[in-house]
């Protein structure tokens, strides 16, 4: 039975001249709706690749991807765009904010094309950036930028919230905050959240842990009793 999110033998290859690299080599997993999924693995394991493919950011070269019963991997470009617009909220590892827009505008940028966006201001408040709404990314610290990025993704009110190493560049406290936020959102809104990290310490928070290595799924662990974020030791 396919879950809310279902990867079935998904393959992703990169050809560069004569060289072919398989970033995803037959990835198969499922996830339920409203789960807090953490995808772990060492660098180069294919985590970002999986997330990208799940988020419609990239195509796959083999296998199928289902989200909410829809075969995302069969989408054409237009469908993918719509998918990304309405159903996906992506938090990037390197924030990827629009430099010439303020925090608020960055969030609005994402919100204004969605069907059912949340109020940008409110979301920013929720992420604790009430006083930073008018600042440009260059004027924000790393954590603040990441929170903007999250706010941006949240404001879209998506089905899936995909976060690529959201705490990668953050310190302990900020990282916790961010993680807390993500978790809270997941639990409060019923949004399915995928978090990629190479930090194993985060995994206790998750409902499901997908371990990747060398482009394959090593292990899928279901966590019956996830820990609250405060209790994580970085």
């Amino acid at each position: 039975m396919a879950g809310y999110v279902s990867f079935q033998n998904v393959v992703k290859e990169y050809k560069m001249g004569d060289v072919t690299v398989r970033a995803a080599d037959g990835i198969t997993f499922d996830a339920e709706k409203g789960e807090f999924v953490v995808v772990v693995g060492p660098s180069g394991a294919g985590k970002t690749t999986v997330l990208n493919m799940l988020g419609g950011m990239d195509t796959c070269d083999g296998g199928k991807i289902f989200v909410d019963g829809v075969e995302v991997s069969a989408f054409n470009k237009k469908q993918l765009t719509t998918y990304r617009r309405h159903d996906i909220g992506f938090v990037f590892q390197f924030y990827n904010l629009v430099q010439n827009l303020t925090a608020l505008e960055n969030v609005e940028l994402a919100a204004q094309i969605c069907k059912n966006p949340l109020d940008a201001r409110q979301v920013l408040k929720d992420v604790g950036l009430e006083n930073r709404m008018g600042n440009f990314p260059a004027q924000l610290s790393g954590g603040e930028q990441q929170r903007v990025s999250i706010a941006r993704a949240l404001a879209k009110n998506p089905k899936l919230l995909l976060c690529d190493e959201p705490t990668g560049a953050l310190d302990d406290a900020t990282g916790r905050q961010v993680l807390e936020l993500l978790h809270k959102t997941c639990k409060n809104t019923g949004m399915t959240v995928f978090v990629i990290t190479h930090n194993q310490a985060i995994t206790p928070v998750a409902d499901r842990i997908i371990k990747l290595r060398n482009g394959r799924v090593r292990e899928i662990i279901r966590n019956e009793n996830p820990l609250p974020v405060e209790r994580i030791e970085w």
Binding site: G55, M57, K77, K78, T81, T82, Y83, R84, R85, H86, I88, F90, F92, N96, L97, V98, Q99, L109, A110, I113, C114, R152, K156
Partner: peptide
């Protein structure tokens, strides 16, 4: 390019 990527990621049409 990056901004194009962002916008594309956000679901803006080509």
């Amino acid at each position: 390019r990056t901004n194009i990527g962002i916008l594309k990621a956000l679901g803006y049409s080509g």
